[in-house]
Amino acid sequence: MTADGFQMLLEGAWITVWISLLAIALGVPLGLLFSLIRVSRLPVLSQIITLYVSVGRATPLITLVLFLFVALPAIGLDIDKYTASVLTLTLNTASFNTEIWRSTYLSFPKSQIEAAQAMGMTRGLYFRRIMLPQMFYTALPALLNEMTFLIKASPAIAVVGIVDLTRVTNRIASQTYEPLPPIIIAGVIYMLSIGSLVRLQRVLEDRRKRYASA
């Protein structure tokens, strides 16, 4: 493989990484927000979120990104392929994260909430001080799991013309007629990305061990 090919691979890797990270950074808090709307049972809004979650989880990424890329301009909203891609991955991962946050919220020990109420804490205060810090650690394994799925599913965005890590290996292969080296390198880069998430999980789990015996 040429130095040129290598350069292309790194560029593709960079695109995969920043688009995925941006979608994760938006999708995790968005999922939390949506889950709170759902558990609050706010009329209409909560039903909209329920619908969004079932549609979001059922729609393939390719379908979603094509839809956004084609449909939004049709109603007069200009959208470039990068925005469409980030939006697609964010909407997809947020729908899964909504369910993760929701079940974490619902399984939070009532006894701790009652203690907080009995001490005179308002709902917002005990959510922020008592629930969220613990919910974060409880949700973490599932959230990180979802992040690895997102990264592995991200090649779907190539369909709107994004040259991500997977797409770039095809390009190099079609130029060099040697598909194996770029595929192997790309595989290693995916593994490293996901490996660093797993590592992050371990570091954060260790922090939680400060206060949990197991």
Partner: peptide, 26 residues
Amino acid sequence: SDRELAAIRARMGKVFQSFNLWPHFT
């Protein structure tokens, strides 16, 4: 309201059978 209730609960202490300490705090 939640706020009014909280203000009045703040003036009553409650001790539970199962302690209900917050585990993430020292």
